[in-house]
Design a binder for these strands. Sequence first.
DNA 1: ATTCTGACAGCAA
DNA 2: TTTGCTGCCAGAA
Length: 124
Amino acid sequence: MTHSSNHPTKSDDINFFEMVYQVTRLIPFGRVTNYGAIAKYLGSPQSSRMVGWAMNTCHAQNEFVPAHRVVNRNGLLTGKMHFTGPDVMQQLLENEGIVVENDQIASFAKLFWDPSKELSPITE
DNA sequence: ATTCTGACAGCAA
DNA sequence: TTTGCTGCCAGAA
């Protein structure tokens, strides 16, 4: 158990991705968070890239995952190219009253929603 | 099996 | 301020 996993079961992986989806679904309407914040909340502060991977396949989920509410640490819409269209992510955000300028969320600090502060310490 | 590439983030120059 | 390197680790080639 010293290595990343002696028996890397798929359930473990699915569990991590699943937890990412669950946290993402808890982001309030009109609010946003970033990849690192989700990773940190899940106990893997240096696995922000994995959160991105999870978002990459979130479309396969039965339950809707508001991936548009997840941006990078600077409030930049770094994942916009992975939506059905180049401006879909921005549209979805604007539909929630969020202002986007040059692929960046306006008043990001104010709209930022930190799961580590808003949620109880890992209740999955 | 091995290498490469990310929807990231932190830090050193 | 900007660029580059590194850690992270799951998939694709």
